[in-house]
């Protein structure tokens, strides 16, 4: 579904991603793990067209999206839940979700989004900025799903969220995958969450992948060694 070849990205002169290659199969959930500053967020932003790729090819479902603007990538089926959630805090919950509908041309939020996150339906008239962290995270995911994506990118979704909600989130993400058949790429530092949610775990270090293994039969000790400071 997602195919990345030789992807390089840089801030000015300093290259952060040194030629990444990976593919995500349809319906697969991939966790990209790594410590701070290893390039997880840059990878997400490069896939989304927020940070320009220096070279390399990114394609979704066979269509190349390298060089497209963010909104064109959304139209090609990529959706993004950024680190820190970045919901539109002065807009109501419903309006936030509706911004995600832009590329679909729909006017009304599909019911199944509120079925996933009933709390958002209860709070649809409230301003996004007045929700709790966990609710904002759900809102950011709902907003991303509104564009009807083929691939969902989540950047550190567990950051700043209480442990009980993290478990729910892993379950919800798997449910979204099962119901919609989309692929999910999630960047993560929390190993337990990654093991809960992912079918495959990759480790990024200094802009290169250093480990790639399916969830079944993963060497947990080895992965956690990559993550320890």
């Amino acid at each position: 579904m997602l195919n990345v070849q030789e992807l390089r990205a840089a801030y000015g002169e300093s290259e952060v991603l040194h030629g990444l290659d990976f593919t995500v199969a349809p319906g697969e959930i991939v966790a990209i793990m790594g410590r701070n500053g290893m390039g997880k967020t840059t990878l997400m932003k490069t896939l989304m067209g927020i940070v320009p790729a220096r070279s390399g090819v990114v394609s979704v479902d066979g269509t190349e999206i390298t060089g497209l603007k963010s909104h064109q990538r959304v139209a090609s089926g990529v959706a993004y839940v950024p680190q820190g959630r970045m919901i539109f805090s002065a807009m109501t919950v419903q309006e936030n979700v509706e911004t995600g509908l832009t590329v679909t041309g729909k006017k009304k939020v599909p019911e199944n989004i509120y079925e996933l996150f009933p709390v958002l339906l209860e709070m649809k008239g409230r301003r996004g900025g007045n929700l709790s962290g966990g609710q904002q995270q759900q809102l950011a995911i709902a907003r991303a799903l509104a564009s009807d994506p083929k691939i969902l990118l989540l950047d550190e979704p567990t950051e700043g969220i209480q442990p009980s909600i993290i478990r729910d989130m892993a379950r919800t993400l798997r449910r979204i995958r099962d119901e919609r058949g989309l692929s999910i790429v999630v960047s993560e530092q929390v190993l337990s969450f990654a093991l809960d949610v992912a079918d495959r775990v990759m480790v990024i270090e200094n802009g290169n992948f250093v480990h790639d293994s399916p969830r079944a039969g993963i060497d947990e000790a080895r992965v956690s060694k990559f993550l320890s400071v």
Partner: peptide, 19 residues
């Protein structure tokens, strides 16, 4: 809605699909 979204976060507005 799009104008207000851009006003609050231009980058994110693009990343939810707003031109």
């Amino acid at each position: 809605k799009q104008v207000r979204a851009i006003n609050q976060n231009r980058v994110m507005a693009g990343a939810v699909g707003i031109n």
